[in-house]
């Protein structure tokens, strides 16, 4: 199974949401990282046939998706970033309906949805109307419908958004259980969501694929560029203006800063082992810095 993206572009009027994107994806978990507006959702919607690419092609095993038609969609499972349900349906009715749209026969639809209900821990709520579900329950129903047809390609667009930390952990485990032998593309801007389950990291910035690296080697490019310093609060403000700050920790009147920089930022700096978060910040530093200052003004 190989999913190939060839020179894929999408333009909304003047706005280039995805630009000449190329990739060959084989089974494995792909963590798709990118800041808000990087084009992750646009890319995924094109793969799902919901948006028509302005140019370029999507191929499954060398065959164009438009030509495959139903054949292509048989292999697809999609959990959108924003989606709705039929509030008057029960969870079970919804699953059986989706199973029918996905072409499962009645018997398989029943057994498969029963199995998935217990997997996503919704067996108790299965016969309640969806309008009574909490956000987390809807999210779990969303992933359950995505894998109903046992898809070879599973597209998850920010599946953990809006979940509390406990649910987020169990959701991550669920995804990793569901990921075997499939092409899974999981988008997020929360690095910790993918750092333990992704095999490959895809990073998008302003519509372009910035980087496609195996998880083990992805941070190699910034090895030796991550630093930690212990400074006074006044100095911390100074540093945060000049460098992308990954982390900051108050320690007895002083502040421990973790930052990414080509060269050692200060004599007292200490090189640190790079992780995915550092990498993300290295690439999206300017954008995220403002957000951090908003949250925690020093």
């Amino acid at each position: 199974m190989e999913l190939q993206l060839q020179n894929l572009s999408k333009q909304y009027g003047e706005k280039r949401a995805v630009q000449r994107l190329n990739a060959r994806l084989t089974p494995g978990v792909y963590g798709l990282l990118g800041a808000n507006g990087a084009g992750k959702t646009t890319l995924m919607r094109m793969i799902c046939g919901l948006l028509k690419p302005t140019s370029g092609a999507i191929l499954l095993n060398e065959a164009a998706m438009e030509e495959l038609g139903e054949q292509y969609y048989t292999h697809l499972g999609y959990m959108p970033q924003d989606f709705g349900f039929y509030p008057e349906f029960t969870g079970r009715e919804f699953m059986l309906y989706m199973a029918a749209v996905k072409g499962l026969d009645k018997k398989r639809a029943k057994s498969r949805s029963q199995k998935l209900f217990s997997m996503v821990n919704l067996q108790e709520a299965a016969d309640k109307k969806i309008k009574t579900y909490s956000g987390g329950m809807k999210q779990r129903l969303g992933i359950a419908q995505a894998v109903l047809n046992n898809p070879a390609i599973l597209i998850l667009d920010e599946p953990t958004a809006g979940l509390d930390p406990k649910e987020r952990v169990s959701f991550r485990n669920l995804i990793s259980q569901l990921s075997r032998n499939r092409i899974v593309i999981l988008s997020t801007h929360i690095v910790s969501d993918v750092s333990c389950i992704a095999d490959t990291i895809l990073m998008m910035k302003q519509g372009r694929l910035l980087l496609q690296e195996p998880m083990d080697t992805v941070t190699d490019s910034i090895r030796g560029k991550v630093w930690e310093v212990l400074v006074s609060e006044r100095q911390a403000v100074e540093y945060s203006r000049r460098f992308p700050i990954v982390n900051l920790h108050h320690e007895k009147g002083k502040v421990r800063l973790r930052m990414v920089s080509e060269t050692m930022p200060a004599a007292e700096g200490r090189a640190a082992e790079p992780d995915l978060e550092d990498l993300f910040l290295y690439h999206f530093g300017n954008q995220t810095q403002e957000e951090m200052e908003d949250v925690d003004p020093i």
């Binding site: 799902c48 046939g49 038609g69 999609y78 924003d82 709705g84 349900f85 989706m98 072409g103 047809n149």
Partner: peptide, 18 residues
């Protein structure tokens, strides 16, 4: 309007039998 189009259109029969 409900945002269910994103669920049914990428399903096998979403653009045909449905």
């Amino acid at each position: 309007q409900a945002g269910t189009d994103a669920l049914i259109l990428p399903a096998k029969y979403g653009k045909t039998k449905l």
